[in-house]
Nucleic acid binder design. Structure first.
Lengths: 192, 192
DNA sequence: TTGATTGTCTAGCGGTGCTAGGATCGAATC
DNA sequence: GATTCGATCCTAGCACCGCTAGACAATCAA
């Protein structure tokens, strides 16, 4: 038995290595540079090994996205819990979200821009994704305002943050006023 | 002279054909299906002809984006001008924006998701892009609220719409409540 | 020690964006 | 009308992509 366990352990280690390497490569040189050949070379195995862990490149992107979602959820909760009062909490949450997107662009892309083959807003949605949304909901639910469904409000707030994050990073919005735009979102959307 | 003029005319026609075909193919089967080979086959020329009009695929995407920006600007103005009063105008604008994104997903991607090699929010930004933003500004400027810069407000409103459009179409948000989310954006962001 | 099973690699498929270099065609000259 | 010559276009091919079949080596059970 022990032999088989060791093998499974080694397989799991290698799988984490693949995901971590893909993420690292993507953050360094962008997702375009994450080819199966380069990835295989970096982990010092041949290409087909990747396909014994994942169905294809999509699934690797999906794995990075899940890892990122868990981190984002933690970052959001950490940010929000460090602030007192609804207004400060929402501001901190927005800042944490935009910070995460800016500091981990490749991971953010894996989560929301690229096709990682993940289900969203559905029954089969993986737990980390649901939990990241839940982290938003925890703080935003209390500022949705009367008669507004907390889930719907969270979706709208999230969309606004997502729009800011993506448009800013793609150079569609000037980088300078990012802070003021975030403040405006908080001030207007949240009912304090 | 006339001969040269005729040739230039024919070249311009062919260039428009390339852009229109790329757009059509992208709307039908997605941008992934827009390969230089397929595109060349559809316009009944060989691949290298594409490169005598455009530097590469990026520039073709950029051309589709510019065409789309002009159309979007017109659609936004048409929508807004058909409504009376600030509130109705902003609602109509938001609806026109989201409609455009939904009805022309490939064009919308060319404009805001893909790399078309275009400059944004800068001096060298092509006119159609500036004009599309101007179309937003015309209606949104009057509901920015006191002490809020109209341009900044327009950027935030735009980001919210962009977030809704992209997250909805990517399946990140359930499609059902799109209308209610749009209403919430208008109600909260605009100062009426 | 043998045989089967697992694991990994080499090699290759059909596709991609893009380009060098030769063929062809049409316009301008004699 | 024949001939040059330059613009125009195409064939063929490059290096790369995601992915996989099949050969090979290492490991285990008998």
């Amino acid at each position: 038995m022990s032999v088989q366990e060791r093998k499974e352990r080694e397989r799991a280690v290698r799988e984490r290595l693949i995901v971590a390497t893909a993420r690292e490569l993507a953050e360094q040189q962008g997702w375009d540079a994450v080819t199966t050949r380069r990835l295989a070379e970096r982990i010092e195995y041949s290409q087909p090994v990747l396909y014994s862990h994942f169905r294809g490149k999509r699934e690797i992107i999906g794995a990075v996205a899940l890892e990122g979602a868990a981190e984002m959820a933690a970052a959001l909760r950490a940010g929000a819990s460090a602030a007192d009062g609804p207004r400060a909490r929402v501001t901190a949450l927005a800042r944490a979200y935009l910070d995460f997107a800016e500091r981990n662009p490749a991971v953010y892309d894996a989560m929301f821009q690229l096709d990682g083959g993940l289900a969203f807003a559905a029954e089969e949605t993986p737990e980390p994704l649901k939990d990241a949304f839940a982290a938003l909901l925890e703080t935003l639910g209390e500022v949705a305002g009367e008669g507004v469904h907390p889930g719907l409000f969270t979706e709208v707030f999230w969309a606004a943050l997502h729009g800011l994050a993506t448009l800013t990073r793609a150079g569609r919005l000037p980088a300078g006023d990012a802070e003021r735009r975030a403040e405006l979102v908080v001030d207007r959307l949240a009912v304090l």
